[in-house]
Simulated assay, not measured.
Amino acid sequence: MIPVVLPPNPVQHFYRGGDRIAALRGIVPQTDRQPEEWLAATVSRFGDPVTGLAVTADGAFLRDLVAADTAGWIGPGEGRDASDVGILVKLLDARQRLPVHVHPERGFAARHLDCPYGKTEAWYVLETEPDCAFYVGWNQEIDRDELDRRRDAQDSEWMLAHMNRLVAREGMGVLVPAGTAHAIDGGIFVAEVQEPTDFSILLEWSVTTSTREESHLDLGFDAVMPAVSTAHLTEAELATLVSDAGTRPAGSAFRSLLPAVADPYFRLTDAAAGGTSTDTRPAGFGVVLVTDGEGALVGVDGRIDVARGQVLAVPHGFGDWRVEGDAAVLLGEPGTGWPQTLRDGGVR
């Protein structure tokens, strides 16, 4: 099997952005509200059966290709279903601040949403404007009743003031565990890797086009608020969620761009062939974004030429593979031990 080159898949949203995605992917934006692209996605937006799904140049859904040959695409075993690839990768290019929101963890999703995945996620900073920041977790213990009142009052200032502010730097990797309140300033362009769902609890819907009744996963706030952590995320704990590996130039060996605690959920690595070749990546499903240069992906089953801005879905059937030429790549892959970990409860 050979990797599949995927055409651009911009996603409309309530917030402004997308010009940096368009520049990287070589497209002309249709509006100033195409701030996301879902890369090689086999899942869709919450409540929408189609939006977000990756489509091949021939018009086929990648989801259907995977379902038709699960072993060829992901290898032994099966995830949630025959089209599950264990990861969702996005480009997110925000030109305005995103709302304070939370994603549920796996236990909550299994009990309330009939899904074995929650939505732990991570960001890798591709570009940022000066002094733009992530808001991650509470900077003190939060009273649940007070949070309910501030949520109902849509007190954005209170929420942001009670969160840890983390200034973004190019090459920074940040893990956001499920249950953690978070927001992103406008001006930051990231590659986002996450569990393959679209579950969000909006604590701050007033800066979006959503209503209160569209902000709680159709479950009601009484049901979803227990999924929101009110614990103090200390400076020491926050430090374990941050990696600066990507602030240094990439080499020929694939290196992790995220803290080690992300590994059970997903992996994000990079490498640069540097005119020769990278080391070999083991067979498995992967999402490749070519961030610079030209070259080729070379596997046991052949090779495919690549160039900056391309996105490819790499099947398990491509075998062990490497990058040749002058190309530099980002690679998103499912978590260590997936899909067995999804079945045996190895990640909770």
Rank of each mutant, 00 (worst) to 15 (best):
V190E: 01
V190A: 07
V190K: 01
A191R: 00
E192A: 01
Q194T: 06
E195I: 06
D198R: 06
D198A: 12
D198M: 06
D198G: 09
F199L: 14
S200W: 13
S200A: 15
I201L: 01
I201W: 03
I201N: 08
L203Q: 02
L203H: 10
E204P: 14
W205F: 02
W205Q: 15
W205I: 12
S206T: 11
S206D: 15
V207K: 10
V207M: 15
V207N: 08
V207F: 10
T208W: 13
T209C: 00
S210V: 01
T211N: 11
T211C: 10
R212E: 11
R212S: 12
E213C: 03
E213Y: 06
E214G: 12
E214V: 08
E214D: 13
E214L: 11
E214C: 08
H216Q: 09
H216W: 10
L217T: 02
L219P: 10
D222Q: 05
A223R: 13
A223K: 15
V224Q: 14
M225L: 13
M225H: 08
A227F: 14
A227H: 13
V228C: 15
V228R: 12
S229R: 09
T230P: 15
T230H: 12
T230V: 13
T230F: 05
A231Y: 03
A231I: 09
H232R: 11
H232C: 12
H232N: 04
L233M: 07
L233G: 10
L233F: 07
L233S: 02
L233E: 07
T234D: 05
A236Y: 02
E237N: 00
E237F: 02
L238E: 07
L238S: 02
L241D: 02
L241P: 07
V242F: 00
V242I: 09
S243Y: 08
S243N: 07
S243W: 06
S243K: 07
D244L: 01
D244I: 00
D244E: 11
A245I: 04
A245C: 04
T247Q: 05
T247C: 04
R248F: 04
A250S: 15
A250P: 07
A250D: 12
A250E: 05
S252M: 09
